[in-house]
Design a protein around this nucleic acid. Structure first.
Lengths: 271, 271
DNA sequence: AAGTGGTCTAGACCACCTG
DNA sequence: AGGTGGTCTAGACCACTTT
């Protein structure tokens, strides 16, 4: 077997050659060729278990031949996998599949909700004091969401409760036109992000998130039932679709006693 | 003048064409062509003030002709400038020079030093109150660095100063055997990480970093010349080589007034 | 020496924005 | 319509690692 730990999956490629090329013909192009090839590699070699952690993917030349794309495009796909922490690319050696992180805490670089994070570790986060409001965009909202001032924005506010304790105060703003307000309210189960992510047509891709340590002022401290001056993490992020459109602006004040924030910092090559 | 705000700097390129091409011939290649071109663009158009904030750089075709590189390479340079937040590239329009932030923006998922981030935006951070100590590993150090208790550990402490203001208190621990203490001290220019990253043999790959908002206690508040209770970000991270060995443990207390922390949260692939 | 990834090029075509 | 950025290709050569 050519996919043993440490071996290269050369011969495994052959089985894919014909079908991969055919599949590439059928591809929908809205995502960019490199991204599609990336997803195919993940499915065909990593998720399938064909190449286990520690083993090498087929070489760039083999992969580019298999999928019928240029080596430049194939390399863009590998670079993407590297950026996601799925493989490590080593000069003169090959692309090593990395072990899946056993991290229990949520990585900040993953775009998913507190609910999803809790569910993954078998816990439940409750939502309290939920409020929906339709407001006119003030100057800050207009700037962050890239809409004209005064246009309608849906605001959602609520408290997150975990193990009977208030752990976060969340505030979301969704501009009119980005997503149907009615659908959002109907499908809402505590997280705006989960609804947006579930809608493929919206193509939500990423959020640029700024992190600031703050001392809670009276207003928010009262909401969270903690003392004024308690240290908290403020996450301020704009969620964007693949085309760069802003689809939501979220602010979250998070208490560190019950939530841990972890991020894997990786060495960069392209810089 | 073609570099007025909102205008394109077309004609300004002509002046550079001859000299830029000549300079490109003389370049040293150890940095990668795209990175060198990026640096030249920053010097020639941005730092020089030739293209003010809000105005457009010359087009990609013009720039690639000027510097004598392919458009692919030129685009890699622009992508890099975009990643550093110096320009905004807009389809069908051009590359807009962005106003320079007085804050140092740190992409949390990138493993690089405060010094490197500052340098990328043309700023400098200074190091003060530097102290080196060799200590025996206590229980916590032994656990984090995965060494036996009591083994020798090199500790480095210092304050980071930016624009005359104290912005961070840093503490690093390096276990014996991971890296020559003498080489580290000799090459140290303010950042332990930069020395480690520069050593290819060490193969430093990533750091797992935990982020916590804290209210500064008296000891650290005094070091940073701020009030007790000031909000700060505590970053606690273990830096690891490709083979998983721990090569350093760092703790940093960072004041948010002059440092910004951003992270791009990405959707997970496939589903 | 052979095979791998790293970089760069010239050319082509497409999608987007603006007059 | 014309210029801009966005993407992709085929081919070439270099640098690194392993045999």
């Amino acid at each position: 077997m050519s996919t043993r730990s440490g071996g290269r999956a050369s011969r495994t490629t052959e089985a894919f050659h014909a079908t991969a090329t055919a599949r590439a013909q059928l591809r929908r192009r809205r995502k960019g060729l490199a991204d599609e090839i990336r997803d195919l590699i993940v499915q065909d070699f990593i998720w399938s278990g064909l190449v286990p952690a520690g083993a090498l993917l087929p070489s760039e030349t083999e992969l580019s031949d298999s999928y019928g794309v240029s080596r430049v495009t194939l390399r863009a796909a590998l670079r993407s996998l590297q950026g996601a922490g799925l493989i490590s690319v080593r000069h003169g050696v090959g692309s090593v599949v990395l072990p899946r992180s056993s991290m229990i805490v949520q990585g900040l670089d993953r775009l998913c909700s507190i609910e999803t994070f809790a569910r993954e570790v078998g816990r439940v986060v409750a939502t309290e004091e939920l409020e929906w409001l339709e407001v006119g965009a003030d100057e800050e909202m207009a700037e962050r969401l890239e809409v004209v001032g005064g246009s309608t924005v849906l605001a959602v506010r609520r408290i997150k409760v975990y193990g009977g304790v208030r752990v976060a105060w969340l505030l979301d703003f969704i501009p009119e036109g980005a997503f149907s307000f009615d659908v959002l309210k109907g499908r809402f189960r505590g997280s705006v992000l989960d609804v947006l992510l579930a809608y493929g047509e919206l193509a939500v891709e990423y959020a640029d998130c700024e992190i600031t340590p703050v001392s809670l002022d009276r207003e928010i401290a009262e909401r969270l039932h903690v003392h004024v001056g308690t240290a908290a993490l403020l996450m301020d992020e704009v969620t964007r679709a693949a085309d760069g459109r802003a689809v939501a602006w979220a602010k979250a004040w998070l208490l560190p006693d019950h939530l841990r924030f972890v991020v894997r910092r990786r060495r960069q090559f392209g810089h």
